[in-house]
Design a protein around this nucleic acid. Sequence first.
RNA 1: GCGGCUGUAGCUCAGUUGGAUAGAGCGGGGGCUUCCUAAGCCCUAGGUCGGGGGUUCGAAUCCUCCCAGCCGCACCA
Length: 639
Amino acid sequence: MLKRLKDELAQCLSERVKSLWGISAASLPEIPPRRELGDLAFPIALQLARELKRSPRAIAEEVAEGLELPDWVLEVRVEGPGFLNLFLDRSRIAASLLENGVLQPLDGELAKTIVEHTNINPNKAAHIGHLRNAVLGDVLAKTLRRLGHPVEIQNYIDDTGVQLADVVVGLMDLRGLDLEAVEGIPEPFDYHCWDLYSEVRRWLDHDPDRQELRRLTLHELEAGSGLRADIGQVVVRRILRCHLATMRRLGIRYDLLTHENAILKLAFFDNAFANLESSGAIHFEKEGKNAGCWVMPLAGSAEFAGLEDPDKIIVRSDGTVTYVGKDIAYQLWKLGLLGLDFHYRYWEEEKVWQTVVENGPEHPTFGSAARVVNVIDARQSYLQKIVRAGVEKIGYAAEAERSIHFAYEMVTLSAAAAEQLGVSNDGDEAKSVEMSGRKGIGVKADDLLDQLESKSRQEITSRNRELQGQELDQLASQIATAALRFLMTKATTTRIIAFDFDEALNFEGESGPYLLYSLVRVKNIRKKLAAAGRETETSAAATQTLAADLWSDDLWDLVLTVAQLQERVEVAASTLELSLLARTALELAQGFNAVYHRHPILHEDDAGLRAVRLATTQIFELGLEALTDLLGMPIPDRM
RNA sequence: GCGGCUGUAGCUCAGUUGGAUAGAGCGGGGGCUUCCUAAGCCCUAGGUCGGGGGUUCGAAUCCUCCCAGCCGCACCA
């Protein structure tokens, strides 16, 4: 809501400047650092000082003199070097937040967005690096939906790749298991494969002749027939079930699982190839080191300046298609430009749609989005750029523009975490260590969640000794989920997270539990007020009539932050910087906890003070609940 | 070599389009519980914003040159 007020004020000011000096000037307000300076600050006089060759303060004075402003601005002052500061009608703004809510969908009909995330290779347990991807993707999807975008969430399953092939080789050739034996491996199957994968990698490296087994397996996986393909299918199904269960612990779900084998079987690439060839995006190389390949030239585009090899191979000399080639075809499908569709089947046990090769039953429409956001870590920026360039070269410049790579930095293990896991970091005491599925180095997602739940349980029982059983389990799970999701979202996307056990398991300070705790406090206040027979809330109408001096700066600060929520959520969604949501949530909780100690409600006898504190508490709750909802943090009833 | 990211308190990090006294958490020191849950609050110490130069009324933020670290630049994904 504040945004509309800001725009209106900016308009007033620019008209004022125009009438005074005939200059067009636009100035957006900032929030002054301290509340006694005002609620909104326009630096317009500072910007004009040069042009008008006058002191900023004098300009500001002149603008302020006789300035007509909307009636919810109570006072205008010139402050500091020449800021034009405004004081707002606190009761009115608070009332408006209670009346209209704190977060509205955007205006107009919005086009469909596909958010693709998680994309874990189905050959081992998920680790905490995968969690960063899934949490960011999920928070983005939730945020877009809340803003009114239709969103389809996809999870891409590479069920024909080398990683899967290696595990199949491990099961069959290293362990000597048949189909039935693989089915019989006890849970947790993903943990079993985690160990097997690193073991088979060593086994393969040990004797180069064994590479032939991998090649054979890969071939069968791609063809989709043979015992190796059958065992591969079992592995994919079992691992996928583990991954979906892990993600469900975090409240993460998908609309569609897209399987690579369907892309191959349905010959998606053939269509894409025809487009790539006829548009001249790729050509057949007759000589040189890429002889026999179909390549996409990248030279000439500034984006790819300075590459050693300016040509990207799309079809190999043996006729097989590279990852990038398949991904271009898939991206075209997502944008509705391929002219082919998958078949679909509903996976009953997992309650999710997945792509299949044969004609399936009635299904919802998938794909064909106006915008596609691929959540993939920053190491793959180069490949994502090529995919985008491919779409563009075919002639879909606008669609390429709406193919967005949501890049984020990876999760590594802090030096301390590496040491606790017994992983070497090359003798450098302070160095963090990259995780590696191939080497079996990493913290498994379920292990971390278990630890977080155990810690939560311990904290809860130390305060609520009577709690046990299902209720305790649920609270512990909620708190663990919140802790983890907050941990993954509070970091800015450009920063590598060096995962540390102590930090992750710390429930104090800048943590998910800290946020939840402040909301639980609000619930408790309401319970106690009800028990004492007092009003449990202040209505919007009553808030509007509260005397201005009841709003102390600390209460008002909280309201003002909530008033900025809409703008911040919109910025977070459009810039893909979701840490802004987490930071704002933290700012609210910190503000509230301070207010909580200074301004008791239950034990305050003055009705006016009780009303204004209660109104502030309600507004805080609206704000923080909106944010925790976007962050996917469940709110426990007690802690 | 080319491209991307990073460098801010002992540690982990925020810092909106250049603005008012550079902030938070952890850790350190000190305090707060007959009163809505101490997963909390308050006080305190701690800074050459990697370095030099420049633009500006004003620079952590923009430009430029250095220095350091991480990532990427396959007929792997």
